[in-house]
């Protein structure tokens, strides 16, 4: 009896504490929260759980719990480290090229000239192309037998015979990075352009009055004011580059040899070809960790003086 009374009292106090509107909100949000929990939160936690098992779909009767062995195995896996180094190179090439080209494009689009709107629209086209379509297009361009790149260079007398592009291991990563940059520059340029537009014109006028040259105005006004934009671009593009998969899948499948065997490709092979969900999950978590770490680094370094 006493317990029932306490229970009723507690219930009443909860009902008193949360009004009708709050309780309605909880009720209406519950279905969405339930969906989110089941399609987002649960898979994330479950994949983390899987990373502690030697779980291979093709061996359903032998899936032992192995604690952190999937993680420690990676540290001694030669191909994993190859994939890490390829990812770092690809990311460095891509992100630095995107930052520089996007800055130039943003500076150009920030000027008033005839046809600026048309040019802005044209520049946005690569961004509007789906990733897979972009990859297929570049596959045709780079093809060593009938590719447009060979055709153009040959017609212009830059080469005397058709070249091997993606099949040449020294060219593979830069060429894939080029395709990635082409697709990513428009968005980066728009983000930087927004930062440029936000710079008050009177800052430039004051600098001119003080006798600052164009270069000085760029270094001391434009660049510092663009830091928020740059931070956004660096974080977003670094994450995109590290996790990028489509171009590697369609253009080279990690080859030739292991020349484009990046981390995302390694995870794909391990998870979906070898069907090793345990080690695939472990690698995915390491990749996520690396992405978080880099984002944190950019926020700390670029965000400090904003």
């Amino acid at each position: 009896m006493a317990n029932t009374a306490i229970h009723k009292a507690t219930r009443r106090s909860l009902l008193d504490r949360y009004g009708y509107e709050e309780r309605s909100a909880v009720l209406f949000l519950a279905p969405v929260m339930l969906v989110l929990m089941s399609v987002a939160v649960f898979p994330i936690l479950y994949s983390f759980y899987l990373s502690f098992f030697r779980m291979k779909l093709t061996r359903p009767n032998n899936q032992p719990f192995i604690w952190f062995e999937n993680y420690s195995d990676l540290l001694t896996n030669e191909l994993f480290w190859v994939s890490v180094s390829r990812t770092v190179v690809f990311t460095l090439i891509s992100v630095s090229a995107i930052a520089v080209i996007a800055l130039l494009v943003a500076l150009l689009l920030n000027q008033e000239f005839k046809g600026r709107r048309v040019l802005s629209t044209i520049i946005l086209i690569p961004w509007a192309i789906p990733y897979v379509a972009n990859a297929l297009m570049w596959k045709w361009i780079y093809d060593s037998g009938y590719g447009a790149l060979n055709g153009a260079l040959y017609q212009l007398d830059f080469i005397d015979k058709y070249m091997v592009w993606l099949g040449d291991q020294d060219k593979t990563l830069p060429l894939i990075a080029n395709a990635f940059v082409w697709k990513e520059v428009p968005l980066a340029a728009i983000l930087l352009l927004v930062s440029l537009k936000a710079i008050p014109a009177d800052l430039y006028q004051a600098a001119r009055v003080d006798g600052a040259t164009v270069w000085q105005r760029f270094i001391h006004i434009t660049l510092p004011a663009m830091k928020p934009g740059f931070m956004l671009v660096m974080i977003y593009e670094t994450m995109m580059a590290i996790r990028h998969f489509d171009l590697f899948f369609i253009l080279t499948e990690g080859g030739p040899g292991d020349a484009s065997h990046v981390l995302s490709w390694h995870i794909y092979v391990e998870t979906f070809r070898n069907l090793s969900f345990g080690s695939g999950a472990a690698m995915s978590y390491l990749l996520a960790l690396a992405t978080f770490a880099l984002s944190y680094f950019f926020i700390r370094t670029l965000g400090r003086r904003i």
């Binding site: 060593s144 037998g145 091997v164 993606l166 099949g167 040449d168 080279t252 080859g255 030739p256 040899g257």
Partner: peptide, 11 residues
Amino acid sequence: SPACVETGELS
């Protein structure tokens, strides 16, 4: 061709 490493059966 050295491009054989990027040449699939269909190509």
